[in-house]
């Protein structure tokens, strides 16, 4: 599987939730050759495109761009790998009772 199989996919819970706008990975350390494990998918209810990270950080400038991008990606959330029930071409189904997490990065 390649990452573009996931990006832009339509995500469904009980109903349509949004599009995969990014995929989050976790490295346990930064030593050479460390595995990068898929942690979850970021879902944007309104936009397929990348959001430049404005909604995942405290960056507020340049304010017109930050405000526009935050508005386009309002309501974004993260769903962890364990809440993904099924992957299909262009479609992801989440488990019943999936948990919405904040998209913010530390």
């Amino acid at each position: 599987m390649i990452i573009t199989d996931l990006l832009g996919s339509r995500v469904f819970g009980p109903d349509f939730l949004g599009f995969v706008s990014d995929v989050r990975f976790f490295l346990e350390s930064e030593t050479e050759g460390q595995s990068a494990r898929l942690y979850g998918i970021l879902i944007s209810p309104h936009a397929r495109s990348s959001s430049l990270g404005f909604e995942r950080s405290g960056v507020r400038s340049p304010w017109p761009i930050a405000a526009l991008v935050r508005w386009r990606h309002r309501g974004s959330f993260l769903v962890r790998w364990s809440d993904i029930e099924r992957l299909e071409v262009g479609r992801i189904q989440l488990r019943p009772g999936f948990e919405r997490a904040s998209p913010e990065l530390p």
Partner: peptide, 21 residues
Amino acid sequence: MTPGTDDRPGRWLDAQLHLLD
């Protein structure tokens, strides 16, 4: 809404933000 990361030591990478292009 719960946090999208946890307190484990390590590094978080978003594919579009940190890797692609």
